[in-house]
Computed example of a mutant assay.
Amino acid sequence: MIKETSNQLKARARGTLLGHYGLPIGASILTTAAIMTLEGLISLVVPKNTAGVLISYLTMLIAAIFSTLLQTGYQYLLLNMARGKKAELKDLIYPFQTMPDHVILLAVRLFLLTLACMLPFLGGLIIFALFYQLLISRIIMVLLLIVSFFLILRMTLDYSQIFLLYLDNPYLSCREIMYQSKNLMKGNRIRYFYLLVSFVGIALLGVVSLGIGFLWITPYMSMTEVEFYRDLINEHSQEF
């Protein structure tokens, strides 16, 4: 089955958002504000001592979990909009109410896989530390850094759809969700990578606008990723 191009997916995203930017912009602001408020409270409450450092790591973990749940809720809101369903701000708390442990476990698995992908580079650092006076040690470290980079990139692309798959199948096991994501991305990794890279230009415009442009850019990018997911599961073909 022929998949849609990046331009077609972006056109779909613009069509869905046209005249309806208010809700995703408001949801994006609310999400960012909630995350920043939590992180700010953590920095104020955590003591500045040795014990505070340990507590800080724990609270940072809690903040990361909260952020992941909230961002998944944001995807749920956009997914509802893309499907022509009623979308509301309360969609943001959907992951908090529906199998939140699955979202957390998926995030933990991604984190552990990322660490595993970094092992070659860590090995390179050890070799460099032991034989730093040898040029070959630096070459090996750089090569292993490149290996780790490509492992992380491959892993990120393979499991890029897990949270959207969770939203459609919240009671499915984490193992099955990750398997389905990897299966869906077979033959689509380069297409997805190209889609992400194609946003570099507009992201730079957002930076130039001192971040104000991201109020519109963030929903646009996120909605396009939602449309990519819908294309992967052949949902677009069912509209005709």
Rank of each mutant, 00 (worst) to 15 (best):
K10Q: 04
Y21C: 02
L41Y: 10
G22M: 11
Y21N: 01
A51L: 10
M36V: 12
R14C: 09
R12N: 09
S6N: 11
S56I: 08
T31S: 10
I62Y: 01
G26P: 04
I42L: 12
Y21L: 05
G22Y: 14
V45E: 02
V45G: 09
T37H: 09
V53P: 09
N49Y: 04
Q8T: 07
T50P: 09
E4I: 10
L30V: 08
N7D: 12
L30Q: 02
T50Y: 14
P24M: 00
S28K: 12
T31V: 09
L30F: 08
R14Y: 12
P24N: 00
L18G: 11
A13M: 04
R14P: 08
K10V: 00
L9H: 03
G19C: 01
L41S: 08
S6D: 09
E39R: 11
L54I: 11
S6L: 11
A13S: 03
I42D: 03
K10D: 00
K48C: 11
Q8R: 03
R12F: 03
V45R: 09
I25D: 01
A27S: 08
G40S: 14
P47Y: 01
A51I: 09
I55C: 04
I42P: 06
T16Y: 04
T31W: 08
K10I: 02
Y57C: 07
K48M: 13
I35T: 00
L30S: 06
L9D: 04
E4S: 13
P24K: 01
R14I: 14
A34N: 01
P47N: 04
V53Q: 14
S43Q: 11
A27P: 02
Q8F: 03
S6V: 14
I62V: 12
G15V: 06
V53M: 14
A11M: 12
N49A: 07
I25W: 00
Y21I: 01
G40I: 05
T50C: 10
A27E: 00
Y21D: 00
G26D: 05
M36Q: 15
L9K: 04
A27K: 05
A27H: 01
I25E: 02
I42V: 11
L23V: 05
A11D: 13
P24Q: 00
T32V: 13
H20C: 06
R12W: 02
L30W: 05
L41T: 07
L17W: 04
N7M: 14
K48F: 15
K48W: 15
L44G: 08
T50V: 15
